[in-house]
Amino acid sequence: MPKVSLTVNGKPVTVEVENRTLLVEMLREQLRLTGTHVGCDTSQCGACVVHVNGASVKSCTILAVQCEGAEVLTIEGLASPDGTLHPMQEAFREYHALQCGFCTPGMVMSAIDLVQRNPQGLSDREIREGLEGNLCRCTGYHNIVRAIAAAQVVMHGKAKELPRAAE
């Protein structure tokens, strides 16, 4: 069996896979990192988005063997070791940007990459366009957009505290 060595959430791992094993299959089935989800089989839904070498990718559309030597970050690796949530996670909770939670890990990982690539800040319209690769069936996206708009303020160091949502 082929082996692939990579770093997942900061930890080096070596995993036996088939050549046809997708990154998401390796994460879910072999590493039991089940926070990354599979919502479609045509690379449309984005529930499987993780970061590979700092860029958001659909882990259902990349082979595990292609990740030799890569650094992979999944939803499980986002919070600080002490449990402090990433500002994007915190914002999703504060703004009720999730309901069933299934698209959420991919949505959060995409949103973080989107904000990081746009230090100038994003308008609501730009956030909506930046979410083209992620489907949510529950929220209607309204609160996801609000959460990302709030999180970017903290992520860009323009505020220490997340702006609170209305009560």
Binding site: G46, A55, V57, K58, T61, I62, S110, G133, N134
Partner: peptide
């Protein structure tokens, strides 16, 4: 092209 994740790969 595609979406951000497609553009990254």
């Amino acid at each position: 092209i595609g979406d951000p994740q497609v553009r990254n790969r």
